[in-house]
Computed example of a mutant assay.
Amino acid sequence: MGIGDDTAARRLRLLATEFTTPARRGSAEVAAARPAHPSAPLNLGIIDHMRAAVAEVVGQVRETAPDAGPRPEDDTAVYAWWRDGTAHLDDDAQQAREAIIYRQSLEHAIAMGDHDVIRPNLCPGCGCVGLMWDRLRRHVACVNRYCVDDLGLARTWTLAQVAHHHVGQKMLKKSAT
């Protein structure tokens, strides 16, 4: 296993089991007009998110370790398959792999509506704890009033940047011990 745990796989499994069915409407909406067409029996946005995540992992495995063997049937097993198939790669390649897995773990949590997963991460700019998810821009923003860009606005980061910084910090701690 990599430096992370199996959080990405657990969150992907949770998405598949709990977040693919559309929300049921309560009795307060009974008087509302009925749609002309019934809604999809699954949450298509979550299905698309899950497929894209698995396709990204499969593409990365095929690119970095073409001899990794067949893709697992269970979508949640692709992360372990990726780690097993690329365990022989150098530290930089493994760090890049772990950053993608961590980014996907954050994306899975955000897809479930859990934006608090961003807060414990350290800001890549100032190193403080206090990041927040900006839903409109789909970026992470630092709340430290001294962590600003050239225009004086709060610095923002992509999930990939936050994941890369997070995994880099973990790798430093791992190599220091």
Rank of each mutant, 00 (worst) to 15 (best):
R103I: 00
L14E: 14
R62T: 05
A154L: 00
I110K: 06
K170M: 15
T86K: 00
R62V: 00
P41F: 15
H49W: 04
P120T: 02
A141I: 02
L106Q: 06
A176Q: 14
Q95A: 05
G168C: 03
D150G: 05
D5P: 07
D48E: 00
G4D: 14
V143D: 12
Q169K: 07
R137C: 02
R24T: 04
H164K: 14
L172F: 13
R24H: 12
C123H: 14
T21V: 10
T21H: 12
A9D: 09
G4M: 11
R62Y: 02
R135E: 11
R97S: 15
A8M: 13
D92K: 07
T158V: 03
W82L: 10
L106G: 00
R155T: 02
Q161K: 05
Y79M: 03
L122F: 08
A80I: 01
V54N: 01
R155E: 02
P66F: 05
H115G: 09
V54E: 09
G69C: 06
C142Q: 07
H139N: 14
V58N: 11
A96H: 11
A32N: 13
D6V: 10
L44T: 08
N43V: 04
H88Y: 09
W157Y: 10
V129T: 10
L122W: 04
D149E: 02
E63A: 15
T21I: 12
W157H: 08
G4H: 14
I110M: 07
T158F: 09
R138M: 03
R137Y: 13
Q95V: 03
R138K: 03
